[in-house]
């Protein structure tokens, strides 16, 4: 049977009006009908609460005697109630909650149970009621979003990230946006277009030319800024320091001079002095720390 004929024969089956709930005609019919789910149960109480409050009815649990006097009283009560509601709604405007980190990172739990690990110097803000699951974000953060009825949106200047329930990191700087997805799927959109980022991928967006690039992530330390766990295998020294800088909040001033030195080591939340001692031992180098600056001294590797 050709495709056209196949279509034709289905079409004939659908040519007659269908009544919902009617016995399905064939397998395809029954199959499609599966989506109607006749077992679904709706929450009557919740629905009634919504409808009665939209009609400004007081919860009608007790029976009223509709004598004139009571009717008048009810109207007065209703009016007072509405006025009260109005007053409450005036003073109870949703508040904007803002969370800002300066020196130290912070693990923050949002009203829906999603968590954000905010790195230092980041800002997160959202409406207190959090009905729409929208946050505004600036800086670097790791999001672990719980699955909810609605999508979860992060707005960052002209970019927005939409997800349903997943974990991923985002990072904005003056000229670049980066997102790494650990689990699930993340959609990143600017005003014109959008891209899907899959687990293990890293998306980079250059603000200057508004272009997206997606690549498989090959850096095992992509989340080390948060976890403090580093794995280096023959990694050039300047790449090692790039990763360390993000977690230890220091600046390796002349690391690029030593990029010929390869490091194989693992660290797990050790103090910076300990990490530097290990590196010094492996590479026969010395480090001089002054405040947040680290200077590397010694012979360049060949």
């Amino acid at each position: 049977m050709t495709y056209r004929n196949m279509n034709r024969s289905w079409l004939e089956k659908y040519d007659q009006p269908q009544t919902p709930g009617k016995t399905p005609k064939d397998e395809f019919d029954a199959f499609i009908e599966l989506s109607s789910d006749p077992t679904v149960v709706f929450d009557e109480d919740k629905a009634w609460d919504r409808v009665s409050s939209r009609l400004s009815m007081t919860p009608a649990k007790k029976r009223f005697d509709y004598s004139i006097i009571l009717k008048v009283a009810a109207v007065v009560v209703l009016a007072a109630f509405t006025f009260l509601l109005y007053q409450v709604s005036l003073t109870d405007n949703p508040q904007l909650v803002e969370v800002t980190t300066t020196d130290a990172p912070l693990n923050y739990t949002l009203p829906d149970g999603s968590t954000v690990y905010l790195d230092a110097n980041s800002t997160l803000s959202f409406q207190e009621d959090f009905n729409e699951r929208i946050v505004t974000f600036d800086g670097r953060g790791f999001y672990d979003v719980v699955k909810g009825g609605s999508t979860f949106t992060i707005q960052m200047h002209d970019l927005s990230v939409t997800v349903l329930g997943t974990s991923f990191s985002v990072e904005t700087s003056d000229n670049q946006f980066r997102s790494f997805v650990k689990e699930g799927l993340v959609q990143v959109s600017d005003t014109h277009s959008s891209r899907m980022v899959k687990p293990g991928e890293i998306l980079t967006y250059q603000k200057s030319d508004k272009k997206f690039a997606i690549a498989a992530n090959d850096n095992p330390n992509i989340l080390a800024w948060k976890t403090g766990k580093f794995i280096f295998k023959n990694t050039p020294f300047d790449e090692v320091t790039d990763n360390l800088e993000k977690y230890y909040k220091v600046n390796f001033r002349n690391a690029h001079q030593f990029k010929g030195c390869l490091v194989t080591a693992e660290f797990d939340q050790q103090d910076l002095t300990e990490v530097l001692a290990v590196l010094g031992e492996i590479l026969n180098l010395e480090f001089k720390i002054s405040q947040t600056e680290v200077k590397t001294l010694g012979k360049v590797c060949k």
Binding site: P20, G21, F42, A47, W48, M57, A60
Partner: peptide, 19 residues
């Protein structure tokens, strides 16, 4: 009568929503 209204509401809400 809001009580009667609630009774009608509850009587058919689930059937109607399912339909």
């Amino acid at each position: 009568d809001t009580v009667a209204f609630e009774e009608i509401f509850r009587r058919y809400y689930n059937d109607l929503a399912r339909y």
